[in-house]
Amino acid sequence: MARPVESSTSLQRTYRYLRISIAATVVAIFVSVAVAAASVGWLTSVSDYFYTPARNVFVGSLIAVSLALFALSGRGLERALLDAAALFAPLIAVVPTTLAPGTIPGVGLPCQYRCFPPEFEPDAENGVITYVIVGGVAVLVALALVALQQSSFRSVAFSLGLAVAVLAAVGLTWLFARDAFLQQGHFVATVAFFALFAAVAVLNAFPRGDAAPPPQAIRAWYIAIAALLALVLVVYVALGVLGIVTRSGVPVVLLVEAAALCLFCAFWVVQCIEKWNEGDPGIR
């Protein structure tokens, strides 16, 4: 007689769908870039496609990732890392990358190498101001929940402190060093986001406290993802410092960013496999 299939709980399905959705955002970004490339060609980076019809999917996917990360943050150090990553994802979306002259037809640039298109500054201003205000409201809501004893201050102290620091840094830099912010903001947020995920992968490979260690095969995947992400970030930062976006006609930054996105997607696929039947990652 066939064994009846156990039905999943609502909480299990919620976590499953969130992890699957995060992985799916990478697929959405790649599809939108490929569709845009059919008309504008292959640009020097994935981020350049912000200035193409792929913009809506690119921005929407990153905002969705941020919300899902907050929902999945769990507890302890992993919560702190995922909350931090959730802070940087919207910045990647609302602060566009710099461009080289001639990259996008019709987008004028007052520079010879790479700079921020002045015509997009109002868009960035709207996004940054919204980010700071909404982030500030989120901090106040979190403090209200602590005051109502719906959560402990100890469990959210690091996330709240980091949120205040990031929001203050973004707001002050926008007010007093706007040119530097527009020139480097996207790059810094991108590096921080993927560096945090390299740390999250290491933490999942070697969990702390009384958390059960993952199976050996899963651990090997986490270690590989963390190591490759670290390597990709080193290359990405080196290319940024040296000002290299193409090499012998090959868009190396585009390939590096695509590799980082693939590793990010792979992390969530592994998470889905490991934690498919886990109802609440905070219950151990």
Rank of each mutant, 00 (worst) to 15 (best):
A2P: 14
F267Q: 00
F58L: 11
P117H: 06
Q216K: 15
L140G: 12
F120P: 02
F153I: 10
Y15T: 03
S10I: 12
I29P: 01
G60N: 06
V94I: 15
Y17C: 09
A201P: 00
Q184V: 12
A192C: 08
I225L: 03
S21K: 04
V40I: 13
I223Y: 02
F158M: 11
L87D: 00
V27H: 12
S45F: 03
L229H: 03
V94E: 01
L72Q: 09
V27W: 12
S8M: 14
F194Q: 00
V132F: 12
V237N: 00
I22E: 01
F181L: 14
S10F: 13
F206N: 07
R208I: 06
A177P: 06
L255H: 10
T14A: 10
L72E: 03
G171I: 08
A211N: 09
A2C: 08
L91Q: 01
Y17A: 07
C262N: 02
A23Q: 05
P53F: 05
L69C: 09
V107R: 07
P96A: 09
G171R: 02
A138F: 12
Q184M: 12
L242W: 13
F58C: 02
C111A: 12
L261C: 05
L172D: 07
A220V: 06
V33P: 01
S7C: 05
A28F: 10
Q12N: 06
L160I: 15
L18Q: 07
P215L: 11
A168W: 14
A64E: 05
A227N: 04
I273N: 02
I225N: 00
E119D: 12
P53C: 05
L140S: 13
A124K: 03
